[in-house]
């Protein structure tokens, strides 16, 4: 165990139109031992972030890779299997940055405009439940591949979700197993009360927009408190802030003051952070000098989510 509490570091990027530039950025972040890189949508000419992640997963080995995908204009079955597939390709280094807001123009999907904020959050919450449920479709040991018996699967360990809700009706099961880290990491940018409520129960990583220490401390306490109501331990939720001037002193102060567990820096700040800040953080013993795990959950110190069906089975057994 490290002597001091470790801080987490990520870089926020937009999916550049040039794949090679995205590779260079991801590899630089990996050399700097960062936890993760998040691709947001935004640039005028860009690449689709989940397909981009697939390409990056093939040419990186350690860093966590996160793509933003909206719960509007997507189907939960499609997104669940896509992120699970990326997680298999990468060996368990993937995260889904869940966006309840639309990332594309409604006019490209036959709508006049996006749903209002309340409707968006309600849809996002149900979307998440379906995705998480599908991710548990296969219990460990369901895939037998037993050449002697001839059974490829243990059908008793594969489960139908049979979800029927206000927005979605999805039977399942998902056609892919859990990954090396169980599920992809779920991240969320939370501001409003409804976003915080969803983040507290669903997110592994929460990005806060607070840049003042006091406000960030309040946000941190609020989120960890809400998470506790869902039976989650403080460490089950990583809160990341983005500071305008991320000096080693500032990051250490925020970490000690329970204002954040980690920090996201802009791609444009990466050089400065790598040269000036990270060596100092390492000297203080609060940032890794090398990766100690292989999955994103291991980097972040997050538990592998327990499979709900395995848990029920164990509970039934007493």
């Amino acid at each position: 165990m490290p002597e001091f509490r470790q801080l987490k570091l990520g870089v926020i990027a937009t999916a550049d139109a040039d794949f090679r530039r995205c590779v260079q950025l991801a590899q630089r972040a990996e050399q700097a031992k960062l936890d993760l890189i998040v691709f947001a949508e935004g640039a005028a000419v860009t690449l689709e972030p989940t397909a981009l992640l697939a390409g990056l997963a093939a040419v990186t080995t350690q860093i966590g890779l996160i793509a933003t995908a909206s719960t509007i204009y997507n189907e939960p079955y499609n997104l669940a299997r896509r992120f699970a597939s990326l997680d298999h390709i990468s060996g368990g280094r993937i995260g889904w940055n869940l966006a309840a807001a639309p990332l594309a123009d409604a006019a490209n999907y036959g709508f006049d405009g996006p749903p209002d904020a309340d409707a968006r959050l309600a849809r996002a919450a149900e979307f998440y439940d379906v995705v998480a449920g599908l991710w548990d479709s296969w219990e460990d040991g369901a895939l037998l591949r037993d050449k002697t018996s001839g059974d490829y699967i243990d059908r008793d360990k594969i489960h139908f979700l049979d979800h029927a809700g206000a927005h979605f009706k999805v039977k399942g099961p998902l056609n892919i197993t859990r990954s090396a880290q169980g599920w992809p990491v779920v991240t969320l940018a939370a501001m409003s009360d409804a976003e915080r409520a969803l983040a507290a129960r669903a997110a592994d990583v929460v990005f806060t927009a607070e840049t003042e220490l006091g406000a960030a401390q309040a946000f941190y306490a609020d989120l960890k408190g809400r998470a506790a109501h869902h039976g989650r331990a403080p460490d089950d939720l990583t809160i990341m802030a983005a500071l305008p001037a991320p000096s080693a002193d500032a990051l250490a102060t925020w970490l000690d003051a329970a204002a954040a567990d980690g920090f996201a820096v802009e791609a444009t700040q990466l050089n400065d952070v790598t040269r000036g800040v990270i060596p100092e953080l390492q000297r203080r013993g609060i940032f890794r000098t090398d990766y100690t795990g292989t999955t994103l959950r291991q980097h972040l110190g997050l538990r592998v989510p327990e499979n709900r069906y395995t848990r029920e089975r164990a509970a039934a057994r007493g």
Binding site: T50, G55, I153, I176
Partner: peptide
Amino acid sequence: FRVRSGRQAHIEPVSGIAA
């Protein structure tokens, strides 16, 4: 489920070819 078939779980192929 066709328990003896090998075609059960697979990587979503658009992600597969992008990788």
